[in-house]
């Protein structure tokens, strides 16, 4: 046991220096700049503009989580249970995004969705629309961009759960006369609940801190928490506010994690 503690020391030291110390700095900032005390927190939690950003963040992240987990579920089904060719193609499609930076992806989506982008041009050429559809600089674009980034992360917890499904249970349900639809909704889906919970948690927690994608695809029209913190640090310096917001964000994420793990820890095991 002692040897174990000794071996883990360097990691603790590294985390302490690179994570805990700066975090304590932020904490200190949030309680002192510019006014000592809870003024910054009071302001963050009462200012209508800030509150609307928090609300928008939660809403967009919830939508992104639902979209990502549903899309990832379908992709994972193809990957784990598809025919060999489908499997390898899907695997490629899951892996490739990992090699592309978040910045290039955001620009990629902009060239797809912008007013004179690919999608609008095609739709016009096909005569389906007359004027360009507004698909960037709004929440739609943010949801698309964030989901695209997060889907692969949802795939892995889902894949573990889907691989663990005992084929015989499905055969048994089929033999009892259950339709494919019933087998999916009442047997397969519940049997993969642990994966769905894991993927949901992971994606939601990831999405709350998103910065680049919403900043670019939202075009300043749908500011999320991370972008607000950025603004308070670099554009209109209010470091104490930024620090308070960061602490709130962190506590919220931590709280959600603890709550969900308490609630579903049994299932997720």
């Amino acid at each position: 046991m002692r040897a174990f503690l000794f071996l883990i020391c360097p990691l603790l030291l590294f985390l302490g220096c690179s994570y805990l110390l700066p975090f304590l700095g932020i904490m200190q900032l949030s309680f002192s700049d510019p006014d000592p005390g809870l003024a910054q927190y009071r302001h963050v939690l009462s200012d209508p503009l800030t509150l609307s950003v928090i609300w928008r963040t939660l809403r967009i992240c919830a939508i992104v989580t639902v979209v990502s987990v549903i899309a990832a579920y379908i992709i994972t089904l193809l990957w784990v249970r598809g025919r060999p060719l489908v499997r390898s193609l899907t695997e490629l499609c899951i892996m490739i995004p990992f090699w592309i930076s978040v910045l290039s992806r955001a620009f990629g989506w902009m060239s797809m969705l912008s007013n004179r982008g690919l999608l609008n041009t095609w739709l016009k050429d096909l005569g389906l629309i007359d004027a360009s559809l507004q698909m960037t600089r709004n929440e739609f674009a943010v949801v698309i961009g964030m989901s695209h980034y997060l889907i692969p992360f949802a795939v892995f917890p889902l894949a573990t759960a889907i691989r663990n499904v005992d084929e015989r249970v499905l055969t048994a349900a089929d033999g009892m006369g259950a339709s494919r639809l019933r087998i999916f909704w009442q047997v397969f889906l519940p049997m993969t609940a642990s994966g769905i919970i894991g993927a949901t948690l992971l994606v939601f927690v990831f999405s709350i801190g998103f910065f680049v994608t919403p900043a670019l695809l939202g075009g300043g029209q749908s500011v999320l928490i991370a972008e607000l913190i950025y603004l308070w640090i670099f554009q209109i310096p209010q470091w104490g506010m930024a620090a308070a917001m960061s602490v709130i964000l962190m506590i919220a994420v931590g709280g959600i994690l603890v709550l969900l793990m308490r609630r579903y820890g049994e299932v997720a095991k």
Binding site: D166, R168, T171, A178, V187
Partner: peptide, 16 residues
């Protein structure tokens, strides 16, 4: 299988 309607006890039980 569903048309035959036989009961089956699988190896490993295959319970839900």
């Amino acid at each position: 299988a569903k048309q035959r309607g036989f009961g089956m006890v699988f190896q490993g039980y295959a319970l839900f």
